[in-house]
Write a protein that binds this DNA or RNA. Structure first.
Lengths: 347, 347
DNA sequence: CTGAAAGCGCTTACAG
DNA sequence: CTGAAAGCGCTTACAG
C-alpha cells in the first residue's frame, strides 16, 4: 500500500444508474423513469429511488444522454478578439444566457489564423455542438473561418454574418443619435465629430447619423474629422479645431473613448473647460477609460452583454427548430451620462 | 412541399460509422479498426474504407468515443474576471495549449456568485470534463466555489489554490526586481515606489523586492507610497513626492500601468521631463495604456498567456495520471522596455 | 405498476 | 484477415 502523500491522487469513478438501480432493488429502466419523472409507478417507489440516487450522489452522465437525445446541450463560441475589449462582455452575455438554459459554451480563440479556425470548428462539430456563435472585434469583417453549410445553426454577433444568416449588431446610427441629440438638448450649437478611420463601416454610419441630427435641428454641419482610434489623434484633432481662426465648437462627439480621452486632455492643456466651454461624449463606454478622464466621460454604451444574451437566445431558438428570419438585427445603444457633457441650461 | 425560403433550414444528420461500413461492404468493427489504424487487415481494405469515409464526410462522434474511453477531451475554465484584463490572455493561453492537444475548453463565467459557481461546476462534472482550471482576477483571493474533493484534477492559475493543489502564479518579486534593477543599471539613484493598497498581497511582495534590490545596491530606501490602483493616485503621489522640500526621486517604479500613467501625466504637468529627469516603469504591460502614455511606458509583463499555457499542460499531465507535486509554481515576468525609463548612461 | 429489450454511435477483446 | 458480440451509460417504446 502506497502512502497517500506519495501517490498521484485517485479520482473516484462516478456512480452509474445501474448502481442506483441495484441499490434500490429495481431495474435501470425503472430507476431512469423514477429520476426523470417519466412512466407510472407508486409515489413510494419513485421516492425511494430518488433517495438512493441522492445518497449515492448519482449524477447522470451527459455524454450518454446526449448520444440518445442527439443534442449535446453545448455550443461553440468563436472569437478572434484576443484583446477582448469588445468580445469579453459579449462572451459573458452569451455564457450567462446559455448556462441558465443548461447549455455550456466552448471557448474557441481563432486569432486570425485560418488553420486554427478550421481546427476549432471541426473539433466543435465532432463534439456535436448544438450550434455556433461567431463573434469578433469588428462588425464589418468576417471571421477567418467558413461557417456556411455547417450541420448546425450559426448566429453572428458583432461580426459580419454570412449571406442568409442571422447577425446581431449594435445600432450604431442610433447610438450616435443619442449622443448628438443629447448635445442638442443641452443647448450646444456647434457640435463637432472626431472619429476613427473611414475604412471602418461604423465610422461612416455614425458620421451620417451625426449629420442627420444636426440637419434636423437646423445646426451647421462641420465635416467630421477622421483619423486613428487613438488618444494621439484626439490631441491632434483638438489642435486643428482650436488652432485656426475659425469658429470653435462647443461640443465634440468622439468615435471612441480613447479619442475622447485625448480630446479632453488636449482641451485641458489649452485651458478650455470641459464641460463648461466644450462638452465631450465618447463611444464604447469603456469604463476603465471613461472613469479615468477628468472629468469622467459621458459615453455611448453598445450593450454588448445584452447583445451576447440575445445571440445566445437566438441560437437556442434555432436549435429548437424555430424558424427565424435571416438578416441583421440591430440592438439599441444607451447613453451613460457622466460629467463631460454638461448639464441642461436650466439644470 | 414547403418552399426553401419559408421553412426553417434542415440540417443534415451526420454520417455514422455504420453507413461507412455498409458503403464499404464491411462490418462496423472492421471500419472502426481501419480508420483508427488498429487490428490487422490488408492495406487494400483499409485504404478502401478510408476512401469511403472520406467521400461520405465521416467524422466520428466524440460523444460516443468519450463514453467508451471515459475521457471527454474537454476541460472547464472557471473565471470571475468579467472585465478580462488579466484572465483573457490567460484564457487564450489555456485554450491554445489545449486545442493543440485535441482538448476543448468550456468557458465558465462565475462572477462572484456562489450559486452560479456551483451551477457551472456541476454542469461541467455532468458533462464529464477531464479536469478544471480555475482562474481569477486576483492572486490572493480564492474563487467563490468549492473545488476540493472533486472527481477530477484541478489546476489554479492566477488565483489562490486550495491546500494541496497545484497553483501557477507570476513571480511578482522577480518582476519587481526586473524593474528596480533596470533602474539601477541605468544609474538612477533615488528610486521611489508608488503602488496599490496593502490589502493586496502583491503590493507587499513587490514592495519587499523593491527594498531588497535597493539595499543590495546600497541605495536609500524610501518608504513605498501606497494608495489606489488608479491614475488619480498616480497624480497625488507625484504631488507628495515633488511638492515638499525633500529630495526628489529620479525614478519611480509603479505598481500598475494606470498609476504609472497618472504619474507620467502629473510629471509632465509639473514640467518634469520623462525619462530625462525621472524614469518611470509600470507593471502589467497593459498595452492599451502602456502605448498611450507619453512617452510610451516601460512595464513589467506577467506573461499571462504563458501562464495559461503552463496551466493547461499541467492539467493535461494530471489528467494523464502523472503525479505532480502540489504547491505554488512561480513563472518569470519580463520587462518590456519602451521610452519612459531612459537609456543607459553611455547609451 | 415494473422490467426486458433495443438502441444512441462507437471500440475492443474474442472467435473463426 | 474479418466479423459477431458485448459494452460505455443512459432512455424509451413495448410487453406483461
Amino acid at each position: 500500500m502506497v502512502s497517500d502523500a506519495e501517490s498521484a491522487p485517485v479520482f473516484a469513478k462516478p456512480v452509474t444508474l445501474r448502481e442506483v438501480a441495484a441499490a434500490a432493488g429495481v431495474s435501470v429502466a425503472t430507476a431512469s423513469k423514477a429520476l426523470n419523472g417519466q412512466g407510472r409507478m407508486t409515489a413510494d417507489t419513485r421516492e425511494r429511488i430518488r433517495e438512493v440516487a441522492q445518497r449515492l450522489g448519482f449524477r447522470p452522465n451527459h455524454l450518454a444522454q446526449s448520444l440518445l437525445r442527439r443534442r449535446s446541450f453545448t455550443v461553440g463560441l468563436l472569437t478572434n478578439d484576443t484583446y477582448g475589449r469588445f468580445s469579453l462582455p459579449l462572451m459573458a452575455g452569451v455564457s450567462d444566457a446559455l448556462v441558465d438554459n443548461g447549455v455550456s459554451v466552448f471557448l474557441c480563440n481563432v486569432e486570425d489564423d485560418l488553420r486554427l479556425g478550421q481546427l476549432h470548428v471541426e473539433a466543435m462539430l465532432d463534439k456535436r455542438v448544438d450550434g455556433i456563435i461567431a463573434t469578433g472585434k469588428r462588425v464589418d469583417r468576417h471571421l477567418p473561418v467558413d461557417l456556411s453549410n455547417l450541420r448546425v445553426p450559426v448566429v453572428y454577433a458583432f461580426t459580419q454574418p454570412d449571406a442568409g444568416a442571422i447577425g446581431l449588431v449594435s445600432d450604431d446610427a442610433g447610438g450616435a443619435r443619442l449622443a448628438v441629440e443629447h448635445f442638442c438638448r443641452l443647448g450646444r450649437r456647434r457640435i463637432a465629430h472626431v472619429s476613427g478611420p473611414s475604412s471602418f463601416e461604423v465610422v461612416n454610419t455614425r458620421a451620417d447619423a451625426y449629420r442627420a441630427v444636426l440637419e434636423e435641428n437646423n445646426l451647421a454641419v462641420s465635416e467630421p474629422l477622421l483619423g486613428a482610434w487613438s488618444e494621439a489623434w484626439g490631441h491632434e484633432a483638438v489642435a486643428r479645431l482650436f488652432g485656426g481662426r475659425g469658429e470653435r465648437p462647443d461640443a465634440i462627439f468622439c468615435g471612441n473613448d480613447q479619442i475622447a480621452r485625448g480630446v479632453i486632455d488636449a482641451l485641458r492643456e489649452r485651458g478650455v473647460g470641459v464641460p463648461d466651454d466644450v462638452g465631450v461624449i465618447g463611444f464604447d463606454n469603456w469604463e476603465i477609460v471613461a472613469e479615468a478622464t477628468r472629468p469622467p466621460l459621458t459615453s455611448v454604451d453598445m450593450n454588448l452583454a445584452s447583445l451576447g444574451r440575445e445571440a445566445g437566445l437566438a441560437l437556442l431558438s434555432l436549435v429548437g427548430g424555430q424558424p427565424a428570419a435571416p438578416g441583421i438585427r440591430k440592438l439599441p445603444c444607451r447613453l451613460v451620462v457622466r460629467q463631460s457633457c454638461g448639464r441642461p441650461p436650466g439644470g
